[in-house]
Amino acid sequence: MALSPTTILIVDDHQLIRETWAHILSNESHLKVVGKAANGEECIELVNTLNPDIILMDIDMKPINGIKATREVRKISNPIKVIGISMHSHPHYVNRMLEEGARGYITKNVSKPVLLEAIEEVSKGNRYLSPDVKVTLVEYVLTQEKNKKRISEREYEIVELICQGLTSFEISQKLQIKKTTVEVHRHNILRKLNLKNTAELVNQFYC
């Protein structure tokens, strides 16, 4: 008895990409594209009716982005497996998707074999990251370790709070220290890491 094909829902706000992915997957007998959605909102609606095995989820969409859509999908049906697909390999996006329950993450410039491998591995219950995403994550870890050695524990704690979007006043309240002390720490962090401003700091720590 032949096994049922793995059903897939494609979610992306660009029609050309949706059609391209659907065409690529249509040549695989063990895969079946059961639906296409232009945004997270449509995705959530289709999940209720189609109940696909796997969702190929774009990240940057409106009004509901892929991260929020993944969270909602997991609430509706835990068995559905999500693979994040984006132009971004930045650790921030990867981590957010994985935190919300995605089982895989690949970039849009991957080859067909990598796309198929991602679907196969995730359908088996495994996690999957495309090679370029793995490289970015390794660079992130190495950068973090290098930066940790150049600043104090307190300064690194402040960096983490800056990455969360907190202001100097909010950081001072959270750490129960003076705002001026936070400002001094921020100045020292930039000086030690040879950075010009907070924007460069955030980019340095991939946050």
Rank of each mutant, 00 (worst) to 15 (best):
K146E: 15
A2G: 10
E99R: 14
G40C: 04
H23R: 12
H30I: 10
Q144S: 13
N203P: 00
V34P: 03
H88N: 12
Y140R: 10
V82E: 14
N109W: 09
L16K: 05
R150G: 03
A2K: 11
E100P: 07
Y140L: 12
M87L: 13
E145V: 14
A22G: 02
K68E: 15
L31T: 07
A199M: 04
E170G: 13
N27R: 11
I85M: 12
E153M: 03
S89V: 04
E157L: 11
E155L: 01
H92R: 13
G101I: 08
V159Q: 02
N48D: 10
N188P: 04
K75E: 11
H185K: 12
H90P: 00
L166W: 04
M57W: 01
K146G: 08
D58W: 04
H30N: 14
I151L: 00
R74E: 05
L161F: 11
K174S: 15
V47N: 09
L16E: 13
I177A: 09
V138I: 15
E183R: 11
S26L: 00
Y105C: 07
T167Q: 13
Q173P: 10
T136G: 08
K62D: 08
V34I: 14
L9A: 05
C43H: 00
L137A: 09
S152K: 07
E100Y: 10
V182K: 06
E120T: 13
E160M: 09
E121S: 10
N126F: 12
I67C: 05
D60I: 14
R150E: 10
E19V: 06
T198Y: 02
I8Q: 01
Q173R: 14
K134R: 12
K148L: 11
T20F: 09
S130D: 00
A199R: 11
V133G: 06
V135A: 13
K108P: 10
D53H: 09
H92E: 00
P113M: 01
I189Y: 03
V184I: 13
K178C: 12
I8Y: 02
Q15H: 13
H23G: 09
P131F: 15
T7M: 05
K148A: 06
Q173F: 09
D12Q: 08
I67N: 08
Q176Y: 06
N65W: 10
N197I: 07
V33I: 06
C163Y: 02
H90S: 05
Y140S: 09
L50F: 04
S26M: 02
I64G: 08
L115P: 02
V11M: 01
I59Q: 09
C163Q: 04
S4Q: 13
G125T: 08
D12W: 02
R74W: 03
Q15D: 14
I8C: 03
I189R: 03
E145H: 05
T6Q: 01
A118F: 02
T198I: 15
V138K: 15
M97T: 01
V11R: 00
Q164K: 15
G84N: 04
